[in-house]
Design a protein around this nucleic acid. Structure first.
Lengths: 194, 194
DNA sequence: TGTACATCAGTGAACGCGCGTTCACTGATGTAC
DNA sequence: TGTACATCAGTGAACGCGCGTTCACTGATGTAC
């Protein structure tokens, strides 16, 4: 069944990127092979290089998409709320939920990739994508925090996002242990009680 | 130069574990090969299995040692201070320093391994070591926080350690970007101003 | 203490495996008339 | 619209490489007398 239509080929590319977006967040930037991704997309590995220049090129495109999706989701959740306090809760509570912990493939790419980025070379393109995506999420968070001036708000947002990422990754690392729920609870309670 | 003395062989084993303790924190749990570790210890790879049952067995022993070293360092820093407030600072400030960010091989194993642990099977021995080590560091942190009762103090410690780990890993992930220092500064300022 | 032999720590070649990547091939799609 | 041919998306075998692990070998160490 080779030589599908051009429309189908474009759709296949889309399916590959979408599969990678989730698999990479689930298993980490180096935990997914080209064969894994192509199989998840219902294809065989040989066709991969017709769509992408390299495994790394796909990783970059897929992680970029994860950031875009995440930002959009935050904005949707915020838009559905009547005021700033409710908007804060609508972002933070799902972020630190058990569902978020247990479904990394559909959750925050910052939390999913922060560990891998520590070992990535400083000039790596995927690292630039990460920083850009992190910055865009931070800027969104800045609009939700309290503070007398912009600098104070930015500091608050940096602190709070660090806590969110730390709590979510630690909860994942300790999943199955009572500690995991304790961490999510402690962070949520701190962030939503102000 | 094969067949060294038994004393030397034991020393070699020690050197291998010590090298692994630092290399694993630096490059992650899957970023170091047996050849890397043995070369860092000044040996060739063939002798590895005379000392360890498997690569995984070394990883577990080396990560356990990293936790023990980290706990000891915290306790030493605390012991050198006159009061609880100074002790808190003596733990938190070095933890979130640029030196700590730039030398993961000699810093907190929780921050170093949290990303890898997210992808480790729940029953993995190295994960149990991680959780045990994390718990021991948490219990130390509990003695440094303020709170009216034990449960409140534990919640505080969980929140603060999540922030410390989140800020340190994010600072590493963004090293080279101005954001990195901003994150360390925001977290330190929050944690040492109370 | 000295000698003769057994032991065994470390060496480096080799094996098997998984992975990223390449490539000849196939046959449906796209196009020129 | 129909036909004949060129194109090219996807297939699966294959290559090269790095890694975890094994193993025959070496020669200094340890030991029995």
């Amino acid at each position: 069944m080779p030589r599908v239509s051009r429309k189908q080929a474009e759709l296949n590319r889309e399916i590959i990127v979408e599969a990678a977006t989730h698999l990479l967040r689930e298993r980490g930037l180096h935990g997914v092979s080209v064969i894994d991704v192509m199989a998840a997309a219902g294809l065989t590995h040989g066709g991969f290089y017709g769509h992408f220049e390299s495994r790394e090129a796909l990783a970059q495109e897929a992680s970029g998409r994860a950031f875009a999706q995440s930002l959009l989701r935050w904005q949707e959740r915020m838009a559905a709320q009547p005021d700033k306090t409710a908007a804060r809760r609508a972002v933070i509570e799902p972020y630190l939920s058990a569902a978020s912990r247990d479904n990394p493939g559909d959750s925050c790419p910052v939390a999913a990739f922060v560990g891998d980025m520590c070992h990535e070379p400083v000039e790596s393109p995927v690292r630039a994508t990460f920083i850009e995506g992190l910055e865009s999420l931070l800027e969104t968070l800045v609009t939700l925090v309290d503070g007398s001036d912009d600098e104070q708000k930015r500091q608050q947002a940096l602190m709070q996002y660090s806590l969110m990422v730390g709590a979510l990754t630690l909860a994942r690392a300790t999943r199955g242990d009572p500690l995991s729920d304790e961490i999510l609870q402690a962070a949520t309670s701190f962030l939503t009680t102000s």
